[in-house]
């Protein structure tokens, strides 16, 4: 089987409200998949179902080869998660954060120590290794958070609006890390409403009101709407009647 994620008519209802309405899609192994939508379009709910945190109302989904209904614990062991809002403990030191997350995923102590050294070295963070996370610049934090999310070599890593507010250079370094990770075979699932992040993905889906309104490569999407940027594609889809008023 070649898909990291398959979803088939995946649905979640809260009372009368259908947050996610029968979405179906596949994500290939090693793909960078963008999962876009406005606030409240159902992105978060869909992602919670895929990460085993929320039980779907209907439909099927397989993540990393496991069923979201029956094997959520297996799924959790094989995925990584990072969000811009919360990822690292600000009152712990860089090394302590690495050790903590390594411990959560049951990596042996010795391996965690080696990984920590390797990470700090790779990120060029040795000057920060023993400072509190709250004291290091945002860009470094984001890169560190991502590295920690893939510390246990997950099959899939979920990124929730990873680079908002980061300076352009750091953002590029961040995306290079993502490319590298994908190149090594890890599937990257990015939820975001920052359209410039969408442009970096292999394929993107755009959610509107609980449904997937479009799913394709950014190039094909832009071509089909005859526009220059993903931002315009998004405006066309979510605001019928044109984007330039």
């Amino acid at each position: 089987m070649n898909h990291a994620i398959t979803a088939n008519n995946l649905t979640k209802r809260f009372g009368d409200f259908t947050a996610v309405d029968a979405i179906s899609f596949e994500v290939d192994k090693g793909e960078i998949f963008g999962f876009l939508g406005a606030n409240g379009a159902g992105k978060t709910t869909a992602m919670r179902m895929l990460t085993g945190l929320s039980r779907p109302t209907e439909g099927e989904a397989m993540v990393a080869g496991y069923d979201v209904y029956r094997e959520p614990e297996q799924i959790k062991r094989r995925i990584g998660y990072m969000s811009q809002k919360f990822s690292l403990y600000e009152d712990l030191k860089v090394r302590e954060n690495i050790r903590f997350y390594g411990g959560i995923y049951g990596l042996p102590r010795k391996q965690v120590r080696q990984e920590a050294d390797r990470l700090i070295e790779e990120l060029g963070m040795s000057e920060f290794a023993n400072s509190l996370v709250s004291g290091i610049p945002l860009g470094w934090r984001q890169k560190l958070a991502f590295s920690i999310a893939i510390l246990h070599r997950p099959a899939i890593v979920f990124l929730d609006e990873p680079t908002g507010g980061v300076d352009p250079v750091t953002r590029r370094q961040f995306w290079e890390m993502i490319y590298k990770t994908a190149n090594e075979g890890t599937t990257v699932f990015v939820t975001t409403h920052y359209m410039d992040e969408a442009e970096y993905c292999n394929r993107v889906s755009i959610m509107v009101e609980g449904r997937i309104a479009a799913l394709d490569t950014p190039q094909a999407m832009k071509a089909s709407f005859g526009v220059e940027t993903m931002n315009e594609v998004f405006l066309r889809l979510t605001r019928p009647g044109g984007g330039n008023t």
Partner: peptide
Amino acid sequence: TTGVDPVSRQEFWE
């Protein structure tokens, strides 16, 4: 416009 979706962002600038 931080954290606001593209549609609202555009409306805000208008």
